[in-house]
């Protein structure tokens, strides 16, 4: 465990490894003290949603700047924190899966503690403190904003015929998950936003939330029985792999219903 003071200083000294300007936004990659690659996502607005039931209405949403993992959380990243790896498809560079929402939140807290940051999740209520300096799951809006990377169409890469180059899904899966980063990234340098594993978001799922959500930093319904998943997985058909596609799952903490199609990536606050 890192000395807290040292860790805070270290966290402030994030190593900037690359900057680029994509779609009018300056994104930059960083490497955290733990050695995990993240991408700075500048705040902005976008049109959120799609044309299928549950994705409507398409509505304008603004989000603050934030950092997001460049890759889905891998089993190596789990091992670095000495956390039990529940994954079906084992491999250091493969995404962790069969992870309940609660355990994804625990990972976020442990990663925060490791880097001397303030954990976001209260492990009794599982409420999320968005003001905390530590890691958390992305809000659904943050996830879609990051996935779109400035694009406005159904796919961040343009024509659907190119999907096999950007996503591990049912038509090109090796029979499960693949190593993270084997496909092309989106314009902001994020890998596997489509496919490989569907990714937990912090929000509870509701089919009607879009018609009543806040237009800035929406955080989802106050309560619910399922959490949002995004991006589709190795086992999903092409039809559900696109930026506005919404999924949900009820495996909050029940080992009997965990799925080897669900993983996650982390975000953290970017100070203004």
């Amino acid at each position: 465990m890192l000395n807290r003071q040292t860790a805070v200083v270290a966290a402030l000294l994030l190593l900037f490894t690359m900057c680029s300007k994509e779609n009018g936004k300056t994104v930059r990659e960083i490497r955290t003290k733990s050695g995990i690659e993240m991408v700075f996502i500048p705040g902005g607005e976008f049109m959120m949603g799609g044309d299928r039931p549950g994705e409507t209405p398409v509505h304008r949403v603004g989000v603050d700047s934030f950092y997001i993992d460049k890759y889905e959380v891998t089993q190596q990243m789990y091992r670095m924190l000495d956390l039990s790896n529940p994954s079906h498809f084992k491999g250091e560079k493969k995404p962790v899966e069969q992870v309940a929402w609660m355990n994804a939140a625990i990972y976020c807290n442990e990663r925060s503690i490791e880097e001397g940051l303030d954990p976001c999740y209260d492990e009794n209520s599982w409420s999320c403190n968005y003001s905390a300096s530590g890691y958390r799951l992305p809000s659904e809006a943050e996830w879609e904003y990051a996935a779109r990377a400035g694009s406005q169409g159904k796919y961040f890469f343009g024509d659907v015929k190119n999907i096999k180059n950007y996503a591990v899904f049912s038509q090109n899966t090796p029979g499960g998950t693949d190593n993270v980063g084997t496909k092309k990234p989106n314009a902001w340098g994020l890998y596997d936003m489509y496919g490989n594993v569907a990714e937990w978001c912090n929000d509870f799922y509701s089919t009607v939330y879009y018609s009543r959500s806040s237009d800035f930093n929406p955080k989802g319904p106050r309560e619910g029985s399922a959490r949002v998943t995004r991006g589709g997985s190795w086992n999903d058909p092409e039809a559900v792999i696109y930026s506005g596609s919404r999924g949900f799952d009820e495996s909050f903490n029940d080992a009997c219903i965990l799925k080897d199609t669900i993983g996650f990536r982390c975000v953290r606050r970017a100070d203004k």
Binding site: L81, D82, L83, S84
Partner: peptide
Amino acid sequence: SESARRFSGESWAT
């Protein structure tokens, strides 16, 4: 228990 870092109440974390 599998993890020496923190307690897990998960039945399978062994």
